[in-house]
Design a protein around this nucleic acid. Structure first.
Lengths: 218, 218
DNA sequence: GTAATAACTTAGATTGATCTAACAAATTAT
DNA sequence: ATAATTTGTTAGATCAATCTAAGTTATTAC
């Protein structure tokens, strides 16, 4: 098996991968807060293990094997988050830190039991898809709330950039997944939106907020 | 905080401690399957951190601080075992491996929630006491079934040497904690016992088995 | 199109946890 | 009581993961 450290590199590569599946050493270094030379030598090591495609001065790419391993780690992370929220009554802003540690546990039986107790969920508490048992992710297409127009009614499907503060902000406005939101108007000059939901009739959401919310049109 | 490795040394010291609280470097080395010189240098390191009393050629002793730290790790281990059995429907023979990993998680909130969900249990699924939030263990005195005499009726209170095979053996004989057992006779030559419980009227238990079962007289 | 800047790599040091080999002290056996 | 054995210690090597310093390649700016 891979070390705790290697697992963190794999996960970071997976999460940083853009549409091309490419990640620069610099990005990776910043994300992990680990200096470039260290990242560099680890990439050589992971290349040895056939987890990463590495060539000097070229962007990094996970191999199929690397993607699978990373997907399985993320699966454990997201199943854990779901378990903590659904079965242990944690708030969605409290689960990241714990899942960050539990994703490294080696016990197929334990995660299978979680999966079963949760009824085989396909998304985590923030709306992110949970990779299947082979590590594959079923990418569902949602759009940013900030890309929607006045008059549309949408359902809140996922949150991106799930920081503690942002999630607490959403809590304070009673913005939770599944919520039906009607867009009443969009301000031209700053992109902020006036929306209605629940009993609230004219809440204002800044562009910073609306571009972090993914929605499904209804 | 202490490293994963340091935590394992502390736990092993705690578990090996005899009535005097003393452990020999040799014992510790064997228990952890780590060579003596490594154990030796780790003991010096833990002595630096005021977790262990170390003097050349003398037995090792945990300091009060060391006992507390070790107790808190064991608390996490045992709470986890209880959670797995009570809330996730694992068998008592399946939980050790998982708890061995989860005892190293750093999340007071997580273990507090477990504790709460379990109703603040004082023993784990094998009958071992769970240390309190300060790391202290409430040592309850039980006696070995093998020390009991014919005619006595006892309640099964705890299992020692909780290996997979032994626990599965107990499962197969429907021997579980809380069970009322009547001792019908004790064989002189091999110390085996004939006992009755449930609907079973004349089960034989070898000395090897009865000395691993702790009971409470009733 | 060169000069400046940023990104990347190489070389070598450090730290934690482990090992083997060799030596010293304590215990056990005769 | 001394020899043999076991236990404990010291010294020095190795490996993984990190760092800093210095050099190399790519990219950006003018």
């Amino acid at each position: 098996m891979h070390s705790y450290t290697e697992e963190n590199y794999l996960k970071a590569l997976f999460n940083l991968a853009n549409d091309k599946g490419e990640v620069s050493p610099n990005e990776l270094s910043k994300r992990l807060a680990i200096k470039m030379p260290t990242v560099n030598s680890m990439m050589k090591k992971l290349a040895e293990k056939k987890l990463v495609h590495y060539e000097s001065y070229k962007p990094l790419r996970l191999t199929e094997k690397g993607k699978k391993e990373a997907g399985l780690i993320i699966r454990k992370h997201r199943l854990t988050e779901m378990f903590l929220v659904q079965k242990m009554d944690f708030g969605w802003e409290q689960v990241h830190e714990i899942a960050e540690q539990m994703e490294h546990l080696h016990s197929p039986h334990f995660f299978e039991k979680m999966d079963e107790m949760l009824g085989y969920p396909t998304i985590d508490p923030h709306g992110s898809p949970i990779p299947d048992k082979t590590g594959k992710i079923d990418w569902v297409h949602f759009e940013k709330l900030s890309d929607c127009k006045a008059g549309e009614t949408v359902k809140l499907a996922a949150v991106i950039h799930t920081t503690d503060e942002f999630l607490k902000f959403l809590n304070s406005r009673q913005l939770h997944l599944g919520l039906k939101i009607k867009i009443k108007m969009v301000e031209k000059f700053d992109g902020s939106m006036v929306v209605s939901y629940n009993k609230k009739n004219a809440e204002s959401l800044s562009h910073t907020v609306s571009e972090r919310l993914l929605v499904e049109k209804i």
